[in-house]
Design a protein around this nucleic acid. Sequence first.
DNA 1: GTCTTCATGAGAATGATTATCGATCACAAT
DNA 2: ATTGTGATCGATAATCATTCTCATGAAGAC
Lengths: 136, 136
Amino acid sequence: MTEQPQRRTTRQRTAIREFLSGAGDFRTAQQIHEQLRAGGDPIGLATVYRTLQTMAEAGDVDMVRTADGESAYRRCTTSGHHHHLVCRSCGRTEEIMAKVVEAWAATIAAEHGFTNVTHDVELYGLCASCGARTVT
Amino acid sequence: MTEQPQRRTTRQRTAIREFLSGAGDFRTAQQIHEQLRAGGDPIGLATVYRTLQTMAEAGDVDMVRTADGESAYRRCTTSGHHHHLVCRSCGRTEEIMAKVVEAWAATIAAEHGFTNVTHDVELYGLCASCGARTVT
DNA sequence: GTCTTCATGAGAATGATTATCGATCACAAT
DNA sequence: ATTGTGATCGATAATCATTCTCATGAAGAC
């Protein structure tokens, strides 16, 4: 049904994949583009967007929206459904599994007669090191 | 510290507030602007954005991001912190309180050494009537 | 090597949101 | 009712992330 067009292995796609693997946390398309170029890897911005989108659909990367509405991508170490705890200051990210939340979501949905329910759950905070640095 | 400038009651602000009260579910700034004008209420787009932002900060309205990154606003009936269960098809929205989630978030945060934690939790699904209409 | 087709990328286009800044209006005091 | 003052408005220009266009380049099949 979903006819997947063939995926080719190009220098650019490899570069993006490796960059994300090395990064660990979330990066925006703009950042990836800029940093790849700075690192001597000529690549077009459009390509970065296209590739990230494709990877996100394929489940190779995770996507979240930053507070100002930009999309940020990250290589998933955990496959399957999970959530994130992101440091508001340095961007460090922890992947989280939460059976509690899944269960809760399912219950609530049922209570209200909703079906086919998905959810977005993201936690934002200050990680240990950033928190220590910031004197409130 | 946070010196709030005085808030004046203008025709435009009233119009927006009333529009949202009547709407019930989420509307984007663009929609609000367009519909208010269509309804014979001259108002500037900039004003709509400014007002919505102010109202959101004051907690008078709720803000969520749509899938394509637009901001949508809604008059809150529940004051204080809460989440939403939004119908993917018709936009109907239920407000939800979830102590479980709050507690879970706090726990996770602590476990990972994060402080100052906030969270975004939104559920999307098909409401009873839309679900019935959609034959999978 | 050749061919077919997908991928690339520079730049233009889109579209939401924000900034600008003089004109206007709300409102407290006269 | 009039006035003074600063908040507010709004048309429009400016931003900025993201998407589109389409001619050129490269992958993979044979």
